[in-house]
Design a protein around this nucleic acid. Structure first.
Lengths: 241, 241
DNA sequence: CTTTACATTTTTGAATCCAATAACCTATAT
DNA sequence: ATATAGGTTATTGGATTCAAAAATGTAAAG
């Protein structure tokens, strides 16, 4: 896969993710080729790969549109991620933490604690916690010793909003966001405790539940109901290499 | 995707699965195009898709070889499948069985019982049980109400031998095969019992353990150590549409 | 008004050619 | 013997063209 080929895939992914290509929108090789300033050939390759990746759906006998994903599909994918991340935590508890893994996780916890230590948060804090959250999750997944789990999580993460990479920030409900995120931070503590104590089943259950922190907890804590202007979706997935 | 395009992908998959294209073998567009009697274009598409599917690995800066898969990778994938199939069983127990799902599962059980009722089995019986096993598993997965689970299982199944679709038959150890398969059939009964009694956690645990029936149980029961001529690998996956 | 048939347009798929790049080989210098 | 440089070959990637197939539009019939 050449540089240009990869750039085309990345660009199309980005356009899908940031809404330049809207859900349900019909994609035509020729217009995309014009838009990206290349011939149809790399577009055709990219469309097939993105379709296989799950970002596109076929239209009629041939051709693609940006895949429309229902709320139910997102929830289903979040559940699958919970189960897989739970498995990763269990495996890590079983094999035990190296010094360096332990340090990384501990650092996430400490920085999370510090973030919440003043009793309130702003948008920047949400983003910071989001990064810590990603590091915490990825450290567990990357060190659990089972590459098939990581693959399965990555493939499942192609459902937008199901992954740990997405956050929504509702600036009109920061007090409730504070509550939600401090709870999630405590969950991290509990997972860590289970890990260092080699409690695989406990780690699995905790981590499985923790997958609900983004969507379900947002609902439960009444986050994300602010007007359009106060809700920001940040996406850092799918556009990475 | 045209008929020819799909045929090319299927053919290449088949050749990978049945060993015509050996693990580690370098694949060249031109020679494959000649071999399949098409131009390079559909081969190029197919290679990229099969690579994304996990069947091929990249070689150097470009080009592909048939992916070499270690025993550990297979084991890891079996574990992931166990966790995902366990999840499917739990979900099905939670939503409950329709009449028709119940009938299908019961039928598998009855036919399994009948198969083992004479106290010994032959190769044909192994194949028959294999089909029943597949139907049992697929019925649970297809009716668990979470499409993301099914997707994750299908994607994980691209690791050869990790899926429920593969069986090995060691004709030199049919008494031990009998033992292994009757045990697996009892496991089916227990899963069914958990399902109809809405016992989600039980169903999940049973189904998770059951994923080990093919590989680990074969080891434990000393199956598959016969000489080359007495071990047949049957594959019904990856060549289906 | 609906359905069917036919013609036209649009879009994708395949083939072919050319370009780019990586891999390999050989010769030379250290 | 090893490393480097240069040349050649092999292979993939992109562009273009032509073909095939699907989608769309229009007219006619019921």
């Amino acid at each position: 896969m050449s540089k240009q080929g990869q750039r085309v895939i990345l660009s199309l992914r980005q356009m899908i993710v940031n809404g330049d290509l809207a859900a349900g929108e019909r994609l035509r090789e020729e217009s995309l080729a014009e838009r990206l300033g290349v011939s149809r050939t790399p577009i055709r390759v990219a469309l097939k790969l993105l379709a296989q990746e799950g970002l596109l759906q076929t239209v009629g006998a041939r051709g693609y549109a940006v895949r429309q994903i229902s709320t139910e599909e997102i929830r289903n994918a979040v559940d699958v991620r919970g189960v897989l991340e739970g498995m990763a935590a269990r495996l890590l508890a079983e094999v035990g933490l190296t010094e360096s893994v332990r340090d990384t996780l501990k650092q996430c916890l400490d920085q999370g604690d510090q973030l919440f230590s003043r009793g309130a948060i702003d948008e920047g804090d949400v983003v910071t916690f989001h990064d810590l959250n990603m590091t915490f999750h990825n450290t567990i997944i990357d060190n659990c010793g089972n590459g098939a789990v990581k693959s399965a999580i990555m493939l499942n993460d192609h459902i937008p909003f199901a992954s740990v990479h997405s956050i929504a920030i509702d600036s009109s409900a920061m007090d409730r966001e504070y509550l939600r995120l401090t709870f999630a931070n405590v969950q991290h503590h509990l997972v860590y405790d289970a890990l260092i104590n080699r409690q695989g089943t406990r780690a699995e259950s905790l981590m499985r539940e923790h997958a609900n922190a983004a969507l379900r907890y947002a609902e439960i804590f009444g986050v994300g109901n602010g007007d359009r202007g106060s809700v920001k979706i940040l996406r850092s997935d799918l556009t990475a290499d």
